Amino acid sequence: MENEKELYTNLIPLLNCKDYTVSGDTFEVMQNQDYEMLVTSPVPADLENYYKSENYISHTDSKKSLFDKVYQKVKNHTLKQKLSLLNSFKTETKSVLDVGAGTGDFLKVCKNNSWETFGVEPSLDAKKIAETKGIFLESDLFEISNKKFDVITLWHVLEHVESLKKTIKTLKKLLKPNGRVVVAVPNYKSYDAKYYKEYWAAYDVPRHLWHFSQCSIHKLFSEVEMIVENTLPMKFDSYYVSLLSEKYKSGKSKPLKASYVGFVSNFKARSTSEYSSLIYVLKNY
């Protein structure tokens, strides 16, 4: 764990952020200048308990609230975009490992389009929902062996993993030559992050342990001899995150205000490339 420790050294306090989803607890978001990355502190010993909520939407197919409905509608649209990205990779075979597969929707779309699918998901509740869709998931990435994949995807997952460097090394090990890792994560350098500050919903403490910049992704993956081949925006994220952030900040849903902030964030990102969330396509040197 020595390599993990260096991510927690020489940290500078930046923000105090509240867990609005489960506990109401407050956590510090600290800056690691060496990696141009932010770190949540402390990491709770019972971290799994902070995922136990019906409001934790990536583990459910809920459509109860306005936020649920927006999330599910956007998810269905982005599934097609994600599949299109995978199909753009020219691979001799079509095997995909989805890490943090949730309720299995992405893998179901891949399976229906001739991809050989594998997945990892630690949440038992999410796995049960995935099984109803014919998607059967493993529980632990580190227990996968004797298998290599053309593509490994992590859709808003890397920010959750406790052993960040170990995870990145494992991804490299499980990748075929010329294979790709696709990572989607929030970007704390976006306009909406700077606007909402400690209320920015994508900090999502303590479930989000790491908060990445483009520089940090380049540096972390270069340490395992992988290069960023392409960086793509997730334009819907600025609207959804702003919708939640407005609620956290004012206690009220303000869809018009949130839509304006989301629009401004995307507009500014046209010149800065600092979108609310980014997809990184990473490839072996």
Rank of each mutant, 00 (worst) to 15 (best):
M1R: 13
E2F: 03
L7W: 04
Y8T: 05
T9D: 07
I12G: 01
P13T: 09
L14F: 09
C17D: 11
K18S: 11
D25C: 11
F27P: 04
Q31F: 15
N32Q: 05
Q33T: 13
M37E: 05
M37I: 08
L38K: 14
V39T: 10
T40K: 10
P42R: 09
P42L: 09
P44Y: 03
P44I: 01
A45M: 11
Y51L: 11
Y51G: 11
Y51P: 08
K52I: 14
E54S: 15
E54T: 12
H59P: 05
T60M: 02
S62V: 00
K64M: 07
L66W: 09
F67L: 13
D68C: 05
K73M: 13
N76G: 13
T78V: 13
K80I: 13
K80A: 11
L85F: 12
S88Q: 12
F89D: 00
E92V: 12
T93L: 01
V96N: 03
G100Y: 02
A101C: 08
A101S: 15
G102M: 05
G102D: 01
T103P: 00
G104N: 08
N112C: 00
W115V: 05
G119L: 13
G119D: 08
D125M: 10
A126Y: 05
A126W: 06
K128T: 12
K128I: 04
A130W: 00
E131L: 13
T132N: 13
F136A: 03
L137H: 10
I144Y: 07
N146W: 09
N146V: 06
F149C: 12
D150N: 15
V157M: 12
V157G: 06
L158R: 07
H160S: 05
E162F: 12
T167C: 05
K172M: 12
N178A: 11
G179K: 03
V181M: 01
V182E: 00
Y188K: 02
K189V: 03
S190V: 04
D192F: 03
E198Q: 14
Y199L: 05
W200H: 04
W200T: 02
A201H: 04
A202T: 06
V205C: 03
P206L: 06
P206D: 09
H208I: 01
F212V: 11
I217R: 06
K219R: 14
L220I: 10
F221Q: 02
S222Q: 15
V224T: 02
V228L: 00
N230V: 00
L232D: 08
P233W: 01
P233M: 02
L244D: 06
L244H: 13
K247Y: 10
K247T: 06
K247D: 01
S250P: 03
G251D: 01
K257S: 08
S259T: 13
V261I: 15
V261D: 02
R270F: 09
S271F: 14
Y275V: 04
S276W: 03
L278I: 07
I279N: 02
L282R: 09
K283E: 14
